[in-house]
Amino acid sequence: MNEVFGLSEDVATLPVAEVAQRLDQPVSRVHQLVKDGQLLSFRREGEVVVPADFLGEDGVVIKGLAGTITVLRDGGYADPDILRWLFEEDDSLPGTPVASLRAGRHREVKRRAQAMAF
C-alpha cells in the first residue's frame, strides 16, 4: 500500500503484527481482511499499518467498517480516499465517520457513504 497523503499523522496506527495479535489471528489473516475490504492498511514510515480506531475494545473490527468500505469502493473511491474520509470531521454526524462507527452509529455513516458514492 502507498503512503496516504492527507491523513493526519495524529491518526494512531498499529503494525499488522499487532493487529493480528489483538484479533487473535495470524498475520496472513489480517492481510486477507485487508484484501477482502474488511480493513484498510497503508504504509507509514515504511511499515504497513492499520488505524487503531478500526479495532474495538473487544478485539474485533468495529461494526459497520466493512460495509462502509464496500459502499465507497463500489462507488469508485480508492482506499486512500476512503481512509481520508473516515478520519475527516463531519459536522452532520458530528465528529468523524470512524468515531461514529465506534459509537455504534454505523447506519448513519453508511447512509452518508451511499450518498457520496452515488
Rank of each mutant, 00 (worst) to 15 (best):
D10Q: 12
S41A: 14
S41P: 15
Q25S: 08
S8I: 00
G6H: 09
R43T: 11
A12N: 12
E3Y: 00
V34E: 03
R29N: 14
A12L: 08
A20G: 01
A20R: 02
L40W: 14
R43H: 10
K35L: 11
V30G: 12
L39W: 02
P15I: 13
S41F: 04
K35P: 04
S28K: 05
E3R: 01
S28H: 04
E47K: 06
L14M: 07
F5H: 11
A12Y: 03
D24S: 04
D24M: 05
E45S: 13
G37A: 10
L7I: 03
F42Q: 14
F42P: 12
L40Y: 11
G46D: 02
D24Y: 07
E18W: 08
S8A: 06
E45I: 11
L40F: 15
V19I: 12
E45T: 14
L40R: 13
D36A: 14
E47V: 15
V34G: 03
E47I: 11
V19F: 04
E47N: 10
Q25N: 08
V4T: 00
E47C: 08
R44P: 00
S41Q: 13
R22Y: 04
E3A: 02
L23W: 02
V4R: 00
V19N: 06
F5A: 05
G6I: 09
R44E: 00
D24H: 04
V30H: 10
F5W: 13
Q25W: 08
G37K: 09
E3K: 02
R44Q: 01
Q32F: 03
Q32V: 07
V30D: 11
V34Q: 05
Q25F: 07
F5C: 03
Q21G: 10
F5D: 09
H31E: 10
A17Y: 12
R44F: 00
V34N: 06
E9I: 06
L23D: 00
S8R: 01
R29P: 13
D24C: 02
G6K: 05
H31S: 11
V30F: 11
E3Q: 02
V16M: 06
V11G: 00
G6L: 07
V34H: 04
V27N: 06
S28E: 15
K35I: 10
R22S: 03
R29T: 12
V27K: 08
G6D: 05
V11A: 02
E9T: 10
L7R: 03
S8G: 03
R22D: 09
G46A: 00
E45Y: 15
Q32T: 10
G37F: 09
H31N: 15
T13N: 12
Q38A: 12
A12P: 11
Q32K: 04
T13F: 12
T13Y: 12
A17F: 15
G37R: 07
V19S: 06
A17S: 15
R22H: 05
